[in-house]
Design a protein around this nucleic acid. Sequence first.
DNA 1: TCTCCTCCCACCTTTGAACAGC
DNA 2: AGCTGTTCAAAGGTGGGAGGAG
Length: 534
Amino acid sequence: MLQEKASAVTDEHVSRLQTGGETDLLPDQSRLGLSTAPTVPSSTEPDQNIENIKVVLHERELWKKFHEAGTEMIITKAGRRMFPSYKVKMTGMNPKTKYILLIDIVPADDHRYKFCDNKWMVAGKAEPAMPGRLYVHPDSPATGAHWMRQLVSFQKLKLTNNHLDPFGHIILNSMHKYQPRLHIVKADENNAFGSKNTAYCTHVFHETAFISVTSYQNHKITQLKIENNPFAKGFRGSEEGDLRVSRLQGKEYPVISKSMVRQRLISTHSHLAGKLGAGVIAGHPQVLSSYQYDTGVPLPNPDSQDPISTHFPQSRDPNLLYHCFKHRDNGRHLELGCKRSYLETSTAVSDEHYFRSPPSYESPLLSHPYRTEAITSREACMYGGMETESGSGAADADDPTNSPSINCNMWATVQPYPRYGMEGVPYQPFTAHFTNSATVTPVVPHPASSVVSRPQADLGVYNSAAVQRGLSPSFPGSRDSSGHPPLYHRKPGSPLLPHRDFSSYSAQGTISIREPAYQYQVGLSSTGSNWTDS
DNA sequence: TCTCCTCCCACCTTTGAACAGC
DNA sequence: AGCTGTTCAAAGGTGGGAGGAG
């Protein structure tokens, strides 16, 4: 356990603040790769500032191995998990403050790729971006103590290429490059999702970028997946050959390797003996101490012809981009319909009690404060059209008594990620906006952002039903004269709002989380069940 | 012909119910 | 009665191959 803990520390990657042009890193902080706080006035105690939160990417070395080979993520119609899964360790949170953690995946650039001559090459302009969706961690909202107690896992996040996906999976285009982003939204004592002092920050881990594919292109990635993903254990072989490969290739005369025999013996014995040690033997290999830990800069691979690495932003900070931003909403209170039962347990009883729901996820190990491998495993809400999916949606995997659960739809216009983080342009911060209705609340580009110059008219918000029916009013296919989807346009006459605006949260539970050119709409089914710290 | 996608398959892990022992 | 550990089956995740679409 101690070894595990120690290795986790060296393995993980502390995120660094991306200032968005507002705040510069102190030299030492920058060198150390630690997140720091922007000089944003705070009405709360200094140690409660969301900008003090540090996020460490778990299994960063594994991520880096994939990144150096050019990470590929399978996308399927039914949805496919990411591997490596997105897990982070949080520190610096206020133990008593509640936060909402969510992930989005944005285009890393505006190119389409093809795998040619064993390397990724640009194959043209990107397809129109898919409707942006958020994956909200199912524990959200939860206290800082909860998030910091163990690893926060987004392993159940699924990727799909089904444009009409009804399950809320994140929709991506195949053969495109994407960048996952982690957003931390503060839900203070008054509200679940934003408040008069709503603050949030965005963490981007450079090594988690990937190219979405429907089948693996790079054999190195395939091998890495097989070697590291327990679910792909059946494909593991040895130098003598792989049973599976032999069977598939020969069809009749499978060659069973020694390692496969051993593996099967172990598996069989594990079953006979209560699966003793199965997890240890076949679990996720921890690529830890044998790898050099640097300050976050992906180690150059002189032997690698890794084209994807070269394609990934070079001018961007090689560690990761971290944006932290605090929004003041001039006293307007926001309320968000979230999981009432979570609230009830978390506020009325101790954090420990809160953490024990649902009990099936709780174990002595998990509850141990120093448990580094523990994950929060309540299935996350795939923000999508799930309210019509009775019992089949991911969000319903929770305790049914957690009704109403978060159930959201969102659509976005997607701005290629590097527009924000590369080329010396301040990273455009994640913007969360809560609207009072399904109508559009205009979005204002960050003053320091390059997005200001992008056509912003008519930043329309899709109607959820329309999207569920595949009737996105203006999204698919068409682009404006600048080559961007129509949603880049700002609605004429719409008032401009400074920075993020959580103020207009809808009583109907409609949330739109947006950036100047990256907009979501999150529809909550938890109508009228605002989560609150009573 | 080539590229990419969908479907299906076998193999594997994970999960939780059922049961036994203390 | 309650807790813990074991067994087992079902569910779900995995990459690869075949075949189809464009």
